[in-house]
Design a protein around this nucleic acid. Sequence first.
DNA 1: GCAAAAGTGTTGATGATACACCCATGT
DNA 2: ACATGGGTGTATCATCAACACTTTTGC
Lengths: 229, 229
Amino acid sequence: MTYNHPKFLVAVDCVIFGYEDSELKVLLRHRDFDPGKGGWSLPGGFVNEKESVEDAALRVLFETTGLKDIFLEQIYTFSEPNRDPGERVISVSFFALIKIQDHDTELVGKNGAHWIPISELPELIFDHKVMVDQALLALQTKAANEVIGRELLPDFFTFNQLVDLYYAIYKRPFDPSNFRKRVKSLNVIERLNFKDKANSRKGAFYYRFKEPEQIEPYSRMVFRLHNQR
Amino acid sequence: MTYNHPKFLVAVDCVIFGYEDSELKVLLRHRDFDPGKGGWSLPGGFVNEKESVEDAALRVLFETTGLKDIFLEQIYTFSEPNRDPGERVISVSFFALIKIQDHDTELVGKNGAHWIPISELPELIFDHKVMVDQALLALQTKAANEVIGRELLPDFFTFNQLVDLYYAIYKRPFDPSNFRKRVKSLNVIERLNFKDKANSRKGAFYYRFKEPEQIEPYSRMVFRLHNQR
DNA sequence: GCAAAAGTGTTGATGATACACCCATGT
DNA sequence: ACATGGGTGTATCATCAACACTTTTGC
């Protein structure tokens, strides 16, 4: 049997976060087609027959970065009838985390995509700014509930890199000493027996994330996002 | 200009929570039509032209409960190609909170809808069980971040009713004394000068929620959902 | 006066914050 | 030996959980 109701174009838009040079960045596309020609947009695409929105998002991610097996999370569905001035499109937004150093820079360039620091966001078309804001909030929430970084940092990293990542995500300072204590207590990373000597004479040990199966559940960071009053 | 891509049926499904007889309940429909005939489903409906998914959900809510101005929050979009055996349908789930005592019971009956305690959920069609589980989690999260009850309890209520609501939502006990202290400290409810004398000789004061504009921001309950380890 | 529920107070444990201090090393 | 960032320890304060206690009232 079939239903008799209106049908809609369905698209996905991806807020792809990366971390580089102590900055949180988003992958944006410069639009060379209408609608929104000349403006900036999130990488996105239409959903195909026999494809879930998650699969469509993974396809878009592969097309723009050349990477598979990417962290991906659905965020919200935007459906205002006039949100796309061209034609009605219902769009599902996602956020993704990738290690910038791993991606295919050639592909990225070919697609007119660019890594833009979150602090220097240009005007975005349609409701894409809202998507970025929601994605950033989701990233902050994720970072509060677990030690983030597995999908953003290099495989080996120092505590300084980790705390700098948190600083970039939250735009607020963290006491390095207390941060270190907290992260260590959660038992999700392990120290390696070599150091980064580039930034100090003493050298800072490298760490890496443990394999997921070695990690106990409920290892939350739980610092207050809003620590006023 | 227009796009040339496949189009899809888009629907909404609503997890409507109510609170009655110290139990958290969900409004379910008994299906007298295919697919899923004879089973239980969430109230839902297809999205119309020129209607956002939020508007569609509000319409479904009005049709099943007779109520407007309902608390409503989008949760997730389900898009597996085969999730509906009839034809491909992409469905956006919502959760809603209503005061059971306010609703139009006649309408509800006419639609084959029933209030089912969350602890006695029957088998649900398609992926509707997942929708309920996600909605319950969203409700628990909301209850942890603010004092919930404005949309579920009668206008006047006692502290016991409030703590019982929390018990129903979390299925775990709360120390009445500490709960009371916590809620009072958040300054979101105010005591009225009359009592419920039905359950004790002393009588328990009635309270009501303050108007939203009288409430300071960041009044979170913040008790741990998972208080193991 | 006493039972029973409403409501308050106290205490010890836990966790967060601020910050002083020690460590290792290249020059 | 000292400057520099890496890393540890500690004192203070806020918050939470447990539970003893007091209050109010009808019978």
